[in-house]
Amino acid sequence: MSEKIDFSHVRFLVVDTNRLMCQLVKDILMMLGCTQVTTARDSEKAIANLRAGGYDVLITEWNLKPRSGLELLDWLRTDGGSPDRMMPVIMLTANSEVEYVMESRDKGVTEFLAKPFTADGMYRRLVSVIARPRDFVSVKGYFGPDRRRQQIPFEGPDRRQQKPD
């Protein structure tokens, strides 16, 4: 039997200033079986929604007003009023340059998806944040998912399995 993913009980908040983009992401989520998708067009509305509770995953654009998507992420991760500091966050943004990826990562983003995105890319990020949850790290200046994800193949002998001399 293979692992399945059932999106029907996962509650999403999608934040983007662009109406068509909000609608497209919502349509994709509904097509995948989601039943609870809320959209917001600015960060204050998003915060009000998050405060009210009832969300499992936040998908946000960086380019928001009055607070940016990055500030929204920071609020969620560090503010005392945050409803869930460990909520998975997908940064879905046209700020696609590498410095934005690094900055998002340093603020505790769970996944980064650059626009323009593909359907496959979107699906992979969704599966990653739901089915492959990461532990969190709290250290001075950072609260967010453990950023150590790189798997470097090593071809030498694995000395960790050897008994000490």
Binding site: K4, V10, D135, V137, G141
Partner: peptide, 28 residues
Amino acid sequence: MRNKPQFIPNRGELKRKAVNYKTGMEIK
């Protein structure tokens, strides 16, 4: 916040809610 990193295990609640062997779509 602290200088020595504190690791907080993910509770995996969302995974339990959505991932199973019966309903939904293939993960791949």
